[in-house]
Design a protein around this nucleic acid. Structure first.
Length: 553
RNA sequence: GCGCCCGUAGCUCAGCGGAUAGAGCAAUUGACUACGGAUCAAUAGGCCGGGGGUUCAAAUCCCUCCGGGCGCACCA
């Protein structure tokens, strides 16, 4: 029996009692979530429904709880029901009902835990989106790991997901990049507003290699700079794509900002807003009246010099996504972009769409890398940029990804490179991966000792570590769904650690293979199902995080 | 000044209304002739930043103050 089944049973009982009392109070399945009590002595599952309904029904909570408990106790698969504290209903399942899950999980394999929260919904996840002026710095990388994980979680919940990267190779930032390359080539100091760092010299050298002996013969400096811009950007962007690929992050669409400009999408989008009455002219510029939709100031879309303002691109890009058919659009940004939320939501509302539904902005707080107790400081001027490569070099891809998704994006985090670089048990990712490898080792040993899955008798899973492990396995679907709803992939990581811990404790207490000359029994065979079920869920959880699940370590 | 995020064990962080607030690391002590000790067991460590409020019940929701981070362009 899984928690959903049990919830349904409790609901039936509660509805029966409510109508028997002649109350009009309506109770739905969402009102009776079951929880795992922290203290195992409180049973396998607990419900607080009696305390919630006591007031509307005008009954004492404990009395109502007792009535519900008495009805529940009569049902099959329930070993006992107690009322505790202010009115908790604590339910103990019999071993067979609880243990059946092990077989269910093995039978369903990688599909166990899959949900339908976003079944058939088209979702566009935009993240990283760094302009190609330098290697990916650590701030952009947080969402590379967390965004990709979120994409996997949405897909697990049935979503039709597109991972998208938006980039721009024109404008002020790119000009500074091109001038920096040019200066490096010419042996001049880095321009005051330029980019420093070894990569500039490296890219400049590669551009020169691509045009051997030619740059010197180009008459104007502007023309040379244009070559550095066009070719340098290409190299830089190639490097970025490669490091993302090496990090296990693959984008379905690389969307170029020029696309919205050249296609006339910007004019199209502004015209749409104009038709909707959200555009006005003032001071020689064209404005979006975003204050009518909750923004704190109006925004320029066409500057007085006739150029498009920054926001015009965002407006056109959003409309483009909608016209490409995406129902839900998520953009993941760093903490320094939180000021964009209001104006973009105003735009969504102006188009007649639903803010926070058709468009969501996820803001991730800063990440610091720490070594020897000291944060690695970034300075663009000094050219000390902490990059994705630095992270991967220090701790590897698995630990790097895991460290980035393990905490809520709402929190600033410090990643201790010394700790995460260690291949020992003070590294959480190894703790989880080792548990997975151990399930495989146990399965291999079982096969060698003649233990197979020919028999499954759930009533034999009676040890307290077995009921604890089963309880955690049962929660996987709910954890994934919650991670999806809240856009919080770190929940999956924390769950994986909890599951790994429960598995290690079970391993310590319950043997799958017989000792010495002992005969193979159905207990061993049934435990193998539980072992394999744990392996399945650990693999799924690690997969959702984009971390490998090794069979041996 | 206005806005967003954060403040929980020595450190890094979980805990989006429930029972005695958790994990990993660090500290102390145990368990290997037992499916991999990359493990497990145990001890110690907390006015959950302060103060008010809502509730049967608050680390969690609301208000306020304090502290830290990040933003508030006809720049991108």
């Amino acid at each position: 029996m899984n928690p959903a089944d049990l919830s349904a049973l409790v609901l039936t009982v509660v509805q029966g009692l409510v109508s028997a009392r002649g109350s009009a109070e309506s109770v739905s399945i969402d009102d009776v979530p079951l929880e795992r009590p922290r203290n195992r002595e409180h049973g396998d599952w607990a419900s607080n429904i009696a305390m919630k309904l006591a007031k509307p029904l005008g009954v004492a909570p404990r009395e109502l709880a007792k009535q519900i408990a008495d009805e529940l106790a009569k049902l099959d698969g329930i070993a006992g029901v107690d009322v505790a504290g202010p009115g908790f209903i604590n339910i103990r399942l019999d071993a067979a009902a609880a243990g059946a899950l092990a077989k269910t999980i093995v039978d369903q394999g990688a599909d166990y835990g899959r949900g339908d929260l976003y079944a058939g919904i088209t979702m566009n996840l935009e993240f990283v989106s760094a302009n190609p002026t330098g290697p990916l710095h650590i701030g952009a990388v947080r969402w590379a790991a967390a965004g990709d994980s979120l994409a996997r979680i949405f897909q697990f919940e049935g979503g039709i997901v597109t991972r998208e990267y938006y980039f721009n190779d024109h404008g002020g930032q790119i000009d500074r990049f091109a001038r920096s390359l040019l200066a490096s080539w010419a042996g001049e100091p880095t321009p005051d507003d330029g980019y420093a760092g070894e990569y500039i010299a490296d890219i400049a050298a590669r551009v020169v290699d691509a045009y051997p002996g030619e740059l010197e013969n180009i008459p104007t400096r502007d023309e040379v700079q244009e070559i550095f811009r066009a070719v340098g950007v290409e190299f830089m962007f190639g490097d970025i794509k490669k490091s993302l690929q090496d990090f296990g992050v693959h984008f379905d669409v690389y969307f170029h900002e020029n696309e919205v400009h050249e296609s006339g999408a910007v004019e199209h989008a502004i015209q749409r807003l104009r038709d909707l009455g959200a555009i006005f002219e003032a001071d020689g510029a064209t404005w979006f009246r975003s204050t009518s939709y909750g923004d704190d100031k109006d925004r320029v879309v066409i500057k007085s010099d006739g150029e498009y303002g920054y926001m015009s691109g965002d407006i056109a890009y959003y409309l483009n996504k909608r016209e490409r058919g995406f129902e839900r659009n998520l953009i993941m940004l760093g903490a320094d972009h939180h000021g964009y939320v209001q104006r973009l939501m105003a735009m969504v509302a102006a188009f007649g769409d639903k803010p926070y539904y058709n468009l969501e902005l996820l803001i991730g707080q800063l990440v610091n890398l720490v070594r020897d107790g000291e944060p690695l400081r970034m300075s663009k001027r000094a050219g000390t940029v902490v990059t994705l490569e630095d992270l991967v070099e220090a701790v590897g891809v698995d630990a790097g990804r895991y460290a980035l998704v393990r905490s809520s994006a709402d929190s600033q985090i410090d990643i201790d490179l010394d700790q995460w670089g260690r291949k020992t048990n003070d590294n959480p990712v190894f703790y989880v991966q080792y548990a997975h490898a151990r399930t495989n080792a146990v399965a291999r040993n079982a096969a060698a000792s003649g233990v197979d899955r020919s028999v499954f008798d759930a009533s034999l899973l009676t040890h307290e570590t077995e009921s604890s492990l089963l309880g955690i396995l049962a929660e996987f679907p709910r954890v994934v769904r919650q991670a999806a709803e809240l856009r919080e992939p770190h929940r999956v990581a924390r769950y994986a650690e909890e599951l790994a811990g429960a598995y290690h404790r079970w391993y310590d207490n319950c043997r799958v293979t017989p000792l010495g000359e002992e005969p193979v029994t159905d207990v061993h065979r049934t435990r193998l199902w539980l072992n394999d079920a744990t392996g399945v869920v650990l693999r799924s959880a690690l997969g959702l995080l984009g971390v490998s699940a090794p069979e041996r370590m």
